[in-house]
Design a protein around this nucleic acid. Structure first.
Lengths: 295, 295
DNA sequence: CCCAATATGAAAATTTTCTTTCATTATAGC
DNA sequence: GCTATAATGAAAGAAAATTTTCATATTGGG
């Protein structure tokens, strides 16, 4: 419910005193908050079948100088409380500040995941899965803070018997590693915030050799994403705070799920084959029923 | 990723051909989508320090009649896809059983996170953070599917200038690695589902040498948790499905947050020191303002 | 039902936003 | 380094949005 908006409270306060047409305006604003923030007085007047003058008077009755001020106030509220990013920031701020409160961490992760839904579309996801399955070998790049992501994805994919190579190198070694990659392969790279030399090198070489690139990022600046064939984009929280890897991990999961469902029985077969091999060769000498490992 | 917006795609298409100032406009729009939808051309010109005329030309270069048309297009996209809840609803409704539906993945992750709140108590979390800070060196173990978790935690902790060693080894090598660890250190291990030989070896040696162990697990079977000093326990979903690492990553985040808040200014200092070093030695030779990396 | 007080809409006046023009500056090709 | 071409900003001009005015309509007490 709408709160703490000066305008909103004023509307409620004065609602009973408002004349007929102005009640109509008040009703509409309360019910269609997120429309009104984008409407001019003329359009609002048309929608409501009320004169522009009356809308101005309505605004003035609420102690605003005029309609633009009223709208500014509505926009302020809208942006502060109803926009995904803002709501997240706020919910983190307002939480009790106990650093050992797991609920707090979870709460903000959930908000992040929810907003990520807005930015990952199933088209790209499908494209990504196709590219993975089509590739001769999948090369997963991810450095420093993103090594864990590269590791996670490459581990899971290799369990489906896909040819996957994890590359967590930087500097000149990067070129060497890239020598063997060609256009029938796929490069997956995790890269956040700003582009680095290594990233640009990678993208340049990929372009030169026509190697398709799947980029997982929180940046949507053209220099960053222009050269990538497929981009999966998700915010990881407000800049300046510690960035969580929960959203990228969820993206990995989506990719893994997608690949698994495409492979169908073959995925299951690959996994059980692995478990067979393991049982026979490595763990069969050990006590009874706890030899397995989770999938 | 922003899609299906004519404007957005047109910006990407034409980005390279755009002159200097207009690139600036393109960058700002892409980065601050949700600001621009509320700005007049005058205000945008002020923010960007670009003339209004140039903004009009930018809009026209994108095949719009003028600025209002461009804005209308941006608003349309914003309202369709970025409004709270809209997109989530949309994608869940439109494709209930599509394996490429990110919203579905996210929903189940959210459920898992929510239930994890009940099984992680702040007492254990606090204990865990204390143990990390008290330890001489933190040894983070995590194999195969859990290597990414070990990598994630050790990377972040080492950024706080803590002594952290990641150990992703198995078999006999494990013994060798454990030789150097003593009771003033801390072992962190990620272990799910069932115990393995390696796990028992680790726990046995730890017990013998009185090394404290922090165990992150989804199992509460006594053989699993008995020997660990601290246990953080969370479900990762029903057996038989692919197990997501989202919950363990969230646990890592909680640990990292806790450590950061305990270190207070020192954490910030360590991070900014790192960024200084990097700036001076590695990236200072490169173009302008994009040398950084995220934290 | 009538009258005063208030509310309303149409249209004019004003303000703000947007577009075009034109002189100046930057850029790319030679 | 020079020149042709394109890009830019300041300011004028056009268009749209907003406010005010004023004549008319509505409302609520007597």
């Amino acid at each position: 419910m709408i709160r703490q908006s000066d305008s909103y409270n004023r509307i409620l306060e004065k609602y009973d005193e408002l004349p007929r047409q102005q009640k109509k305006i008040a009703d509409y604003i309360i019910r269609h908050f997120d429309e009104v923030v984008f409407l001019s007085i003329t359009k609002l007047a048309n929608v409501l079948q009320v004169s522009e003058a009356t809308i101005v008077r309505f605004a003035q009755n609420l102690d605003h100088k005029g309609f633009p001020e009223l709208k500014k106030d509505l926009v302020k509220y809208y942006r502060d409380y109803l926009t995904p990013g803002e709501r997240m920031k706020r919910s983190i701020q307002t939480m009790p500040d106990d650093p050992f409160n797991f609920a707090r961490v979870v709460e903000s992760e959930i908000e992040l995941l929810k907003s990520a839904v807005n930015t990952i579309d199933s088209g790209s996801l499908k494209q990504a899965v196709d590219a993975i399955l089509r590739a001769n070998t999948v090369y997963v790049f991810g450095n420093s803070g993103n090594e864990c992501l590269a590791n996670h994805l490459s581990f899971r994919l290799s369990r489906f018997k896909l040819k996957v190579v994890q590359q967590s190198v930087s500097g000149k070694n990067l070129f060497e590693k890239m020598l063997v990659i060609d256009k029938n392969d796929l490069i997956i790279d995790y890269h956040f915030y700003k582009s680095t030399i290594d990233f640009r090198r990678l993208m340049d070489v990929a372009e030169e050799k026509s190697i398709p690139v799947l980029l997982v990022t929180d940046s949507i600046l053209p220099p960053m994403i222009k050269k990538a064939k497929i981009v999966l984009h998700a915010e990881r929280g407000p800049a300046g705070t510690f960035h969580s890897q929960v959203v990228p991990v969820a993206i990995n999961n989506a990719l893994i799920d997608g690949v698994a469902s495409r492979l169908g029985d073959n995925a299951v077969k690959a996994l059980s084959e692995l478990s067979e091999i393991r049982k026979r060769h490595y763990y069969s000498d050990f006590s009874g029923n706890d030899a397995g490992e989770d999938i």
